[in-house]
Amino acid sequence: MEVHVISVVDDDASVRAAADNLLSSHGYMVHTFASAEDFLRSARLEDTSFVVADVQMPGISGLDLLTEVRRRGNHTPFIFITAFPDQSVRARALKAGAVGLLEKPFACSTLIDNIEAVLNRK
């Protein structure tokens, strides 16, 4: 059975810890990053199966992270999480290639269902 690697990019340590616990408990290998810059500097981009990223972060935003990852020719699926949802952010995220945008707080099952739906399509 293939183990999927999920990278969580969020400037909030409590969100990173909660996502790590949730995803690990579902059998995923999880790597967490406090910023988009940390993720881009890491060696994890190439082995990541799925990215969960906050929209609003200091420095490079989640949307800009997705744009940069796509510019590098990487098509890893992204789902965004945000505490500040609005339709323009949702539209920009989906146009940039995100598979979804979840509003904080969200049900754990919603995140898992979204990830599994995408990974099971591959």
Rank of each mutant, 00 (worst) to 15 (best):
V9K: 09
T76F: 11
V52N: 07
E2V: 13
E103C: 06
S7F: 10
I79G: 04
Q56K: 14
N114I: 00
Y28I: 02
P85Y: 12
K104P: 11
H26Q: 13
D20Q: 15
V8M: 09
V51H: 11
Q87H: 03
K122N: 12
D12K: 11
A43S: 15
P105A: 10
D86I: 05
D86T: 10
A19F: 01
F106I: 04
S49E: 01
N74M: 12
L101I: 15
G100P: 08
S14W: 03
N114V: 02
R92N: 12
F33Q: 04
N21F: 10
Y28D: 12
L22S: 01
R41N: 14
D54M: 03
H26C: 06
I81R: 03
Y28M: 06
N120F: 00
A43F: 00
S61P: 04
F80D: 13
V51S: 10
R90F: 09
K95W: 01
V15G: 03
D54A: 14
T82A: 09
L94P: 00
T76D: 03
T82W: 10
C108M: 00
A107H: 13
A93W: 08
T82N: 11
S7M: 11
D64I: 00
D11K: 03
A13S: 13
I79Y: 07
A34C: 12
V9H: 08
L111R: 07
I112S: 04
I81N: 07
A83Q: 11
I79Q: 05
D10R: 09
G62C: 09
T110H: 09
A34G: 14
P77E: 09
T76E: 08
D86C: 15
F84L: 13
C108R: 10
D11R: 05
N120H: 08
K104G: 10
S7P: 02
S42M: 09
A83N: 12
R41L: 14
G97S: 05
V8G: 05
L23V: 01
L111Q: 06
R72P: 01
D20Y: 03
A107F: 01
A98I: 13
D10Q: 09
F84R: 13
K122C: 07
D10M: 09
E116S: 12
K122V: 10
R92W: 00
A117M: 08
Q87F: 04
T110L: 09
N120Y: 00
S14G: 00
D11M: 05
V5R: 08
D38T: 02
M1T: 08
I6W: 07
P77V: 12
P85S: 10
G73S: 04
S61D: 13
H26P: 00
R90D: 06
F106V: 10
H31Q: 14
D113Q: 12
R16H: 01
N114H: 15
T82M: 10
L102C: 11
R90E: 15
V69I: 14
V52E: 05
A93G: 13
P105W: 02
N21Y: 05
L119Y: 06
L66H: 04
V8Y: 11
P58L: 02
A19L: 15
G59E: 07
V118D: 02
D113I: 00
A43T: 13
N21I: 06
F106N: 07
A43K: 14
M57C: 05
D86A: 05
G59K: 08
F39Y: 15
R16N: 13
